[in-house]
Design a protein around this nucleic acid. Structure first.
Length: 270
DNA sequence: AAGCAGGGAGAGA
DNA sequence: TCTCTCCCTGCT
């Protein structure tokens, strides 16, 4: 058990922000997530958080995963005081952070996300993990499933993938797994590359277009300058930024602002 | 119950 | 380049 007081963090907002699909509410104020083969529960009471892990694990894995080294308060203060829409979006999604998630998991996740909705993405990812991933148990005996490595997905093949209800996306996922194994999709190179290079490489991969590549850059490589434009963001830009989004003003971190806007739009729709 | 939902590939212009 | 259709599936 590790406890911390943390500003600019809200678990519910992150879980619903569409950047991660394996973070679920366990009970009041408690969320559970699986990442890097490990399972974590977090309880939030205001700005006080308790994590179901040791101080060591917190420092080595979760602090970084939750992007706690980044000052989101400072970023929010950079928002144009004249931009009432963006201020409102930030006010509503004040506790959003960009999680530093695993690259391979993000590649598969956002391949699944195309032309798809959040609840179905969640189900697909969970089914993929429980079918092809590795079954693990916490010290308390709670079962969880790790995200399948490329080897496991390639080994499963279309025979298994086609039974998971992924639709036409199954062949993209198998293709990506095979590409990692044969070296044509080089994860280590992507991790070292800058945003432009990573994006250019990603769109070469079958099933990855501009939007999905941007999501992978933002959520899997922490290139916070990446600004994915999906149908929601497109709609937002048309409604609130007819002259175009001020990318110059927010150069280098526009992706974080995109996340506030996206979250705001999801809530407005409901 | 036709049409849509966090897109992309492939074809044709 | 740009536009158009089709793609799996589940939900409304």
């Amino acid at each position: 058990m590790t406890e911390r007081k943390i500003a600019d963090l809200d678990l519910r907002q992150i879980a619903e922000s569409g950047q991660c699909f394996r973070m679920v509410q366990k009970r009041e104020n408690v969320y559970a997530l699986t990442a890097f083969g490990k399972y974590l529960e977090i309880e939030q009471n205001g700005d006080m958080f308790s994590f179901s892990c040791t101080e060591e694990a917190f420092g080595e894995i979760w602090e970084d995963y939750l992007d706690l080294h980044t000052d989101y308060g400072a970023i929010k203060r950079l928002v144009d005081a004249e931009d009432t829409y963006l201020l409102e979006a930030v006010r509503e999604g004040w506790g959003i952070r960009i999680l530093r998630q695993d690259l391979w998991e993000m590649i598969v996740t956002f391949l699944v996300s195309q032309n798809n909705n959040i609840s179905r993405i969640r189900k697909s990812i969970e089914l993929l993990c429980s079918t092809v991933g590795t079954e693990q148990y916490t010290e308390e005996g709670l079962r969880y499933d790790t995200f399948p490595e490329p080897e496991a997905i390639a080994h499963a093949g279309m025979e298994v993938l086609s039974t998971l209800g992924l639709g036409y996306r199954d062949k993209y996922i198998l293709g990506a797994a095979q590409a990692v194994l044969d070296g044509s999709l080089d994860l280590e190179m992507l991790r070292l590359a800058d945003y432009e290079t990573a994006h250019k490489e990603l769109v070469k991969q079958y099933g990855i277009g501009k939007k999905v590549a941007d999501c992978i850059c933002l959520f899997g490589l922490y290139h916070i300058e990446a600004f994915p434009v999906d149908t929601h963001v497109k709609k937002i830009l048309e409604a609130h930024y007819p002259g175009g989004f001020p990318h110059e003003r927010y150069k280098g971190y526009a992706g974080i602002l995109q996340q506030y806007m996206f979250y705001h739009d999801l809530n407005a729709a409901a």
